[in-house]
Design a protein around this nucleic acid. Structure first.
Length: 896
RNA sequence: GCUCGCUUAGCUCAGUUGGUAGAGCGCACGCUUCACACGCGUGAUGUCGCAGGUUCGAGUCCUGCAGCGAGCACCA
């Protein structure tokens, strides 16, 4: 067999994914066990306009690890892929295209424009779905969904209609965030607060029938044109006599009153607040409490309206601001202007400063929908957040403080609001136009022109992708989903809303667990972003180091924020190569061997290194299995890395090499080869969820692979490692004694290697080795392993006796259990140097002995610490004493 | 203002019931040892942000402080 020395990831990546996909390995139907436990995940649907970034790759890796692990463990697994239509984002992308072509959506008209968007979606809108194949994501493509699919749109209408009928959705005037550039309403979650250096203007309003003036402070002087009151705190003695008084609004001449409202903070500014109910959310609330009139002075283009007066009409809001301030100054009513930092709301999409406006929109009363999810959290702590802190609290606090959700968007791309208006002014909300006509008793209907917030359909994602509102077998089988893996910035926009709708329509949580990933920053700790152009493209990393290596890095990130570190990928690329070469070695020596064979019936007949590696393997399977269940991906990766590299490669392969590479075919050689292959095959299975490609590539090459490796649930399925049974730890094979004995051999070998290195013995030069072990069992272990030890340390001979019997001119070392070793170095040894080496060793031991002695002499410790802890320390003390005394004897040999 | 994180080896990070500080990279020395130089062997490196406290014992629990960061509220 001719296997290259270096692993080429691309080659394997190209082949296997297509095979898995075409053979239907990703679909839950591949599982033939009717009683199989179910595991399901819905993907956070990426925006159809997006391209794969590290955050996606991170989430997808974790979802794939879980899905593959559960699938191999015999679960009926489903991971649903799909995309979000991403209302504004997509519309902007297509509008930009139109602009390049010299046209616009308005020229095209609604129908043509939508056709154009669909065309765009089909031609270039599924990039991420294609990129996911590269990642190895084992999603069920037969169930791929798009939020604008017919079925999902039906779910949207059903959701809307039911909520409307229950009064949870209503149509009315309300204070909303308006983006003057995108020309649409936005929900509170779609605007970002940003710190802004600005000014605070102190304006004076004359009191009618008096010389007195009331000074108000504002950051937005232009809105004074729409003021309909000034508010003060009812307890503020400065203004007590003015409550109810009439003020003359400068520039406008309108008479407005002074009202008392607890909202006003007497300590801020002047303690008097101008109230513009039509253009500020807080003022709107004050206005409602005091039944103040609404005067609209700013329009949807952020320009002043006729209501602002002829002098200002048509001015941009910022021009108007300057003009107003100038006027106040002229009139001597501008008290002062001070620098002031405040926060400003910007459109999450285009960064334009949003304008709070009163507008006729559709709203959803979310607080009603939040009630049952809150109960679920309080009563059953569902869903379970990972990490629990701070997200459980963040989620709960959010649900407890919900405002109404602005649903309608003045866009064309999205789910059209299922509301129709009759000519006589009635509103009909229905699942379809046909239903609306029937209900209205007329065909003369006009549908509401607006579409729904893109998050409205996202809120239904777990149920709509599974078939809701129909009672489908998928919904029955896969809901509630097992886990949601997502980024923290959409907990409110998405996670909490999925819980609200899921609970409302099914009575059950949308997912058992919610795993919030960490954030990947660039190497300077900056957030990766398009504008900063500091993003690391996952596909470039895949090209450079392979998908498997990248996945190991991503899986290790877990929930903590991390700076991107390419060295880490390189080290896992090296790990992949290590796996490749270990397998290469096994395959080069596989003639006559088969996976699954080579281990004798009776374990008592196994050699120490076989008992040891099987013990390590099972221990690894236990730790890894438990770690994945607990979302401790980093622990799982570390454990696998060290098992494979340290235990399997550095020790097991080296220990068995002479047997495995024997020149003559023999039953013993073939059995040894089979054992190595068997351990390798199990290791590949353990690694597969993290490294799907290299493990499949190698697994397919192993001799003896067949149905018996597959999990019973996949009995007749194609032979692929992704359907092999995930190794379960067999506790009876975890052998503490074998591990202890092996540890003694490892220590012996290490000490000799240390001497060789320190004494500058040439690697090729063989030296004799003398071992003295007072303990008979230890002696037996060393004797049994003598040949292997000799190979590992390049010993020309090994002599093992009860007491050390070595020439004076030897380098020495002590081992556990009072054993010691010597490497005779006639003519080569520098006595002074060796004395110094041993003295340092003794110093270390003495230091530790002192600490231990102190601890054991402490009556409080002995009395209060757990008995086993005390026993453990005593055991260590004994060992150190033995070592020290052996060491002292060695040193005597060098006494001058 | 409220809530919460992080601060461990030069770098990026682990450290799961409190019980002798770890990994990878990097560094030093030596190796074309017949799977792998993307490798092998050996070695050096930390007063675990600071100050207190609880405890026989604290990187780990509590309090305060500092630096960095996140979310929420407010911002007239």
């Amino acid at each position: 067999m001719d296997i290259p020395k270096t692993y080429d990831p691309k080659q394997a990546e190209e082949r296997h994914y297509a095979n898995w996909e075409s053979q239907g390995c990703f679909a839950p139907e591949i599982n033939r066990d009717p009683n199989a436990p179910v595991y399901s995940i819905v993907i956070p649907p990426p925006n159809v306009t997006g391209s794969l970034h590290m955050g996606h790759a991170l989430q997808h890796t974790l979802m794939d690890v879980l899905t593959r692990f559960k699938r191999m463990s015999g679960h009926r697994t489903l991971w649903v892929p799909g995309e979000d239509h991403a209302g504004i984002s997509t519309q902007i992308v297509v509008e930009r295209e139109l602009k390049r072509e010299g046209t616009s959506r308005h020229e095209l008209g609604r129908e043509k424009f939508l056709e154009r968007v669909w065309q765009w979606r089909h031609e270039s809108g599924s990039r991420i779905m294609q990129q996911m194949r590269r990642e190895g994501a084992s999603v069920d493509w037969s169930r791929q969904r798009f939020t604008m699919d017919e079925g999902l749109s039906r779910a949207v209408n059903e959701f809307f209609v039911r909520c409307y009928e229950e009064g949870l959705i209503y149509h009315g005037e309300g204070m909303i965030n308006w983006c003057p550039r995108d020309q649409t309403a936005l929900s509170d979650l779609e605007v970002d607060k940003e710190a802004q250096a600005g000014k605070l203007y102190y304006l004076q309003y004359p009191v009618k029938g008096s010389d007195r003036r009331v000074t108000v402070a504002t950051t937005r002087p232009e809105t004074m044109l729409g003021d309909t009151a000034v508010a003060v705190n009812p307890t503020d003695e400065r203004y007590l006599d003015l409550v109810g008084a009439t003020l003359l609004l400068p520039l406008v001449g309108r008479e407005i009153t002074v009202v008392a409202d607890v909202f006003v903070d007497p300590l801020f500014g002047t303690g008097a607040v101008k109230v513009t109910p039509a253009h500020d959310p807080n003022d709107y609330a004050i206005g409602a409490r005091h039944e103040l009139p609404l005067v609209k002075v700013i329009d949807q283009h952020a320009r002043m309206t006729a209501g602002a007066g002829a002098e200002f009409e048509g001015l941009d809001r910022y021009e108007a601001r300057e003009r107003v301030v100038a006027k106040f100054e002229e009139l001597g009513l501008l008290e002062k202007v001070v620098d002031y930092e405040f926060s400003i709301s910007k459109c999450g999409r285009c960064r334009t400063v949003v304008e709070p406006l009163i507008s006729l929109q559709w709203f959803c009363r979310q607080s009603e929908l939040a009630r049952r999810p809150l109960d679920l959290m309080r009563e059953r702590r569902e869903p379970r957040f990972v990490p629990e802190n701070p997200y459980e609290k963040v989620y709960t606090n959010w649900l407890e403080n919900l405002h109404d959700w602005t649903l309608s968007r003045q866009l064309w791309w999205g789910h059209r609001i299922p509301a129709w208006y009759t000519e006589d002014g009635r509103t009909i909300v229905a699942r379809s136009e046909a239903e609306a006509r029937e209900r209205a008793g007329t065909d003369r209907l006009t549908q509401d022109p607006d579409v729904l917030d893109t998050w409205f359909s996202s809120a239904l994602w777990p149920i709509s992708t599974l078939g809701w509102p129909d009672e489908t077998p998928d919904l029955e089988m896969f809901y509630p989903t097992s886990v949601l893996i997502t980024a923290r910035d959409i907990i409110f926009l998405w996670v909490s809303r999925m819980m609200m709708t899921g609970v409302k329509f099914t009575g059950e949580r949308a997912f058992d667990d919610v795993f919030i990933t960490g954030t990947i920053f660039d190497k300077h700790g900056q957030r990766m972003s398009k504008s900063k152009n500091n993003g690391v493209d996952p596909l470039e990393i895949f090209d450079k180091y392979g998908v498997d290596a990248t996945r190991l890095v991503l899986a290790s990130i877990e929930t903590t924020d991390t700076r991107w570190n390419e060295n880490q990928v390189e080290s896992y690329r090296n790990f992949a190569n290590k796996i490749w070469n270990a397998a290469r070695f096994c395959l080069m020596n596989s003639e006559g061997a088969r996976v699954g064979q080579g281990f004798a019936e009776r374990r008592a007949d196994w050699a120490l290194h076989d008992r040891w590696i099987v013990s390590r393997l099972n221990r690894t399977a236990r730790i890894v299995g438990e770690a994945i269940e607990k979302y401790q991906f980093h622990l799982a990766v570390q454990t696998l890395y060290h098992f494979f590299w340290d235990d399997f490669c550095d020790w097991y392969i080296e220990l068995t090499k002479s047997e495995v590479t024997g020149a003559e075919a023999s039953p013993a050689r073939e059995a040894a080869r089979s054992r190595v292959l068997t351990v390798l095959e199990q290791a590949l299975r353990l690694l597969h969820p993290f490294m799907p490609f290299i493990t499949e590539e190698l697994w397919q090459m192993l001799p003896g692979i067949g149905d018996e490796q597959l999990h019973p649930a996949y009995a007749a399925a194609p032979l692929t490692i992704m359907l092999a049974a995930y190794p379960q730890a067999r506790e009876e094979l975890i052998d503490e004694r074998a591990e202890g004995e092996m540890q003694a051999i490892i220590e012996l070998v290490s000490r000799v290697r240390n001497i060789r290195s320190e004494m500058n013995i040439k690697p090729g030069e063989a030296v004799p080795l003398v071992v003295g072990a007072p303990d008979a069992e230890a002696r037996a272990v060393f004797e049994a392993g003598a040949q292997q030890i000799a190979r590992l340390v390049r010993a020309s001979s090994i002599s093992i006796t009860e007491t050390l019997d070595a020439p004076r001119a030897s380098a020495r070392a002590v081992l556990g259990g009072g054993a010691e070793l010597a490497v005779p170095l006639e003519g080569l040894i520098d006595f002074a140097q060796e004395r110094e080496r041993l003295r340092k060793e003794e110093e270390k031991l003495t230091k530790e002995a002192e600490r231990l002695r102190g601890q054991l002499a402490n009556e409080n410790f002995v009395a209060r610490a757990p008995a086993e802890k005390v026993a453990e320390l005593r055991q260590r003390m004994t060992d150190i004493e033995q070592r020290t005394s052996a060491l002292r004897q060695s040193m005597e040999a060098f006494a001058e």
